[in-house]
Write a protein that binds this DNA or RNA. Sequence first.
DNA 1: TTATAAATGAGAATATTTATCATTATCATA
DNA 2: TATGATAATGATAAATATTCTCATTTATAA
Lengths: 139, 139
Amino acid sequence: MEKHEIKKAGLKVTLPRVKILSLLEKHGGHLSAEDVYKLLLGEGEEIGLATVYRVLTQFQTAGLVVRHNFEGGQSVFELDHGDHHDHLVCLRCGRVEEFVDDTIENRQQAIADRHGFTIKDHALVIYGYCGDPNCQKDD
Amino acid sequence: MEKHEIKKAGLKVTLPRVKILSLLEKHGGHLSAEDVYKLLLGEGEEIGLATVYRVLTQFQTAGLVVRHNFEGGQSVFELDHGDHHDHLVCLRCGRVEEFVDDTIENRQQAIADRHGFTIKDHALVIYGYCGDPNCQKDD
DNA sequence: TTATAAATGAGAATATTTATCATTATCATA
DNA sequence: TATGATAATGATAAATATTCTCATTTATAA
């Protein structure tokens, strides 16, 4: 139940927050603030875009969602299930796939150590063309 | 000589282009469009911000510079010396360090293959606190 | 030198995100 | 359950980053 998670985050349980959280659960995917806004409109919810941004940022601070800055302007958000993962992004159709690779994770830590860095976060995004025939064909 | 590279890129050799290219060479670092604009102003060059963006984008298309989308709004640009590398970014002081790790590169290729992706580009950024004592101390 | 096509500068326009503020809703407590 | 302190919302303005427009200027091939 979403209400519990929102309460745990120290936030009041409001309609916009419940709706946005369940939307993210339903879609699983990687949604921009505007995606969320439009999906809410489609469901007949009159929730302002400013509220969407505000709530997503609060969820991010609370650790409920993660924010990614892929190429192309808009940030995208997804539920944080605690399992860190990296991304493959198709430049043609926008499809996003996830992956985890322990070898890469370990190498990153070793590199940070060598440079005297304390890792707070990291982002690995592979951009390319996905397996779909429409995305593989040349320009 | 910068003029040659500009000409090779199929662009006319103009003062803004020569200045911007030599600025990137001089600084080596990772400059935002606004950084470039202000540095030019500091040198007494009256080059518009729009021109800076335009030229940087053209250089990117021509393969002369690479553009990175680190966290925090602005894109940063650096000369493309042909040697791909990834980045460590300090969240406190903004320092940027570069690294290459063949193991990570190979794993990425393997992952893309497994997912049926054709890699066009990739970005690995490790965010954290660098070795500087001021950056390591707690909040 | 000159004609042509491209580049520039200034400011408008766009896109994304954040801030402001008056109004409304939540929720602990009475 | 009613209530009041506090937080959240929606509408809009503002801030930020980047791109577009267009009249003027400049580079360069002939």
